[in-house]
């Protein structure tokens, strides 16, 4: 029995595809344990679409890969819409490339529990859309300090960090699902020079995870796709939240809210705090 939102998404997908307003509709279809991305191009396939709390993947991650086809319709939760704004800010997408069907989100379930990232969600509703489907969701996110593991002792923080990253098997699933990771050649894949060793030794893993987190600075919308994709359950969200918190405190920037804003690490303020400089 399809819920209301599902029914409206199906109907609008059919209309948009039949009228030729979009060439593809990017939405969700049922999967084995959670919903999976659906790339619908024929109006008659629109009935495959669903929307419920199992719809985890951040669909914005696919937009740079399919935008060459023409205008894409996309179903966007709060976090997905922020990713779209980020792509607009970084000129990876033009506004006219996408038709956004915004949906309020009550959080994504992972193993029938509310996903970690959704527990701290501040933006359950789309920040940009062409059409809002269903009712806006109530913001329920509790702000959580970046990493509950943040201990006062440097040695303990080190133990936590070591414990997390030493499990990494370097499958790069976190990168693959991330809407902010669109570089044609990732720094971990370069061979001349080979910046990051390919082994899973601690020092290579640390280098990878610190740089991955740095590349998220001012760019992570905290959708939690990386954490959910990680087969080793590494606490990637703590690192992401930390960099977001640093950027917010130092530069007053929150990722993916306004398309006309410049990415915070490409601009500066002459009066930026520099207490860390000798």
């Amino acid at each position: 029995m399809p819920n209301d939102v599902t029914a409206v998404i199906q109907r609008r997908a059919r209309e948009l595809l039949s009228s030729g307003q979009v060439v593809m509709l990017l939405g969700y279809r049922p999967g084995r344990s959670s919903a999976q991305p659906a790339f619908i191009t024929r109006p008659e396939d629109a009935s495959l679409l669903v929307f419920d709390q199992s719809c985890g993947p951040n669909l914005a991650a696919f937009l740079p890969k399919v935008k060459h086809l023409g205008r894409i319709g996309v179903v966007a939760k709060g976090c997905d819409s922020r990713s779209i704004v980020l792509l607009l800010q970084e000129h990876q997408l033009r506004r006219e490339d996408v038709f956004i069907l915004g949906v309020g989100c009550n959080g994504v379930l992972q193993d029938s529990r509310l996903s970690d990232s959704c527990q701290t969600c501040q933006f359950p509703n789309p920040v940009i859309y062409d059409e809002l489907i269903g009712e806006p969701a109530a913001a329920s996110g509790q702000l959580k300090a970046a990493g509950g593991q943040q201990s006062a002792d440097s040695g303990q923080r080190w133990q936590w960090f070591k414990n997390e990253v030493s499990r990494c098997i370097r499958c790069y699933a976190c990168r693959q699902v991330c809407p902010s990771c669109y570089c044609p050649i990732c720094f971990v894949d370069t061979t001349m020079p080979s910046w990051v060793g390919r082994t899973t030794r601690l020092s290579d893993n640390m280098l990878f995870h610190i740089i991955r987190a740095l590349h998220m600075a001012g760019r992570c919308v905290e959708c939690g796709a990386c954490s959910r994709a990680c087969p080793m359950a590494i606490d990637l969200m703590s690192l992401n939240r930390k960099v977001s918190q640093i950027v917010k405190e130092r530069f007053g920037h929150i990722a993916g809210l306004r398309a006309e804003e410049k990415p915070p690490l490409t601009v500066f303020d002459p009066d930026d705090r520099q207490e860390f400089i000798i």
């Binding site: 440097s154 923080r157 740095l214 690192l239 960099v243 130092r250 530069f251």
Partner: peptide, 28 residues
């Protein structure tokens, strides 16, 4: 100026990860 922003984030993140403060220094 742009480098300063980048170093600020690196500095705070390294501290969070438990890399000893002072391993990496910046100066003008």
């Amino acid at each position: 100026y742009v480098a300063r922003r980048r170093f600020a984030v690196l500095h705070d993140l390294l501290e969070f990860c438990g890399i000893e403060p002072g391993r990496v220094s910046f100066s003008w």
